[in-house]
Design a protein around this nucleic acid. Structure first.
Lengths: 155, 155
DNA sequence: ACAAATAATTGACATTTTCAACGGTCCGTG
DNA sequence: CACGGACCGTTGAAAATGTCAATTATTTGT
């Protein structure tokens, strides 16, 4: 039947018809792993990783997040946010301002240098994203984002 | 305008309108984090995590993967697969058989106990998946899987 | 004014990731 | 057939991440 007579036929990605390949958790994990690796590779040029890029993005967005909000949003332990912000602050990309409305909290703001770097990094990020989505139409791209939002932000 | 007069209006998830929230990498990361946590919580009952569940799934699927194929498929370092398989083998859920076609390679096969455990774990996994997708219609569920496959298995 | 709750920080510890090196096996070429 | 180079699984160490409890400063409700 099969044109190839070997015991291990297709060789390359035989596992793609396994049950696991239908598992949403697995697909998410694998898609995320590939995407994360690509993003990190592209951001390295700017001295960033996906994590620090995310923090910088939120700081540059004038949404003035507290560290706790950052932790919740990025699904990190608050102590990890401390380290992340330390790194960005040491590079003068970001500033901690104690929230006047709640002096326990720090609000994050990007410096001008931070905004400039973010703008450049965003270009790289966008390029990577487009590369990954080469096989996806713009409508499907948006549809994918919509569906992921449902998973990422359950009501 | 806004009915709330505070400086920090909505309070809860203000960050959801930031630019980052439109970033596919971020949505993937966050969706994956939540999904992974839910999966791990559900699988703990069976002494499994998402990783070991995946390995067991492939072993139980009679696809006879080598450890290298496992590593590639799950996006893990080969040395991580060693540890994973060690764990499952110690619990007699899985066996290493040296591939007769290539004596360097180990092929993974599930034991009867492994198959039985997998069947039970799969139920838990399915339940979790349905819970996470409560807000998604079955058609969209399939569409999401399709789109994720494009990201997870770029040609 | 006080007790309980919350934000950030620190430090300890566990888990995961990443990498280089090694023995055993395979494969193509001479 | 023998050899060199590639490949598989394994080990061990180092780096990065994740998890948690304790601490200080501040807020909030009573």
């Amino acid at each position: 039947m099969s044109p190839i007579g070997k015991t291990r036929p297709t060789g390359r990605d035989r596992l793609r018809d396994s049950v696991l390949a239908g598992d949403l958790s697995f697909l998410l994990a694998r898609a995320n792993a590939l995407t994360l690796a690509a993003a990190n590779a592209a951001l390295a040029e700017h001295g960033l990783k996906a994590r620090s890029y995310s923090v910088l993005a939120l700081a540059a967005d004038d949404v003035r997040p507290t560290q706790r909000e950052l932790a919740e949003f990025l699904r990190l332990d608050p102590s990890q946010v401390v380290a992340l912000v330390d790194g960005l602050e040491k590079r003068q990309l970001v500033e901690r301002r104690t929230d006047p409305a709640d002096r326990r909290a720090n609000v994050l703001v990007a410096t001008d240098a931070g905004r400039a770097l973010f703008a450049r990094a965003q270009e790289s990020a966008r390029a990577v994203e487009l590369g990954l989505l080469a096989a996806v139409t713009p409508e499907d791209h948006e549809r994918l984002a919509q569906l992921l939002r449902l998973l990422a932000f359950p009501e």
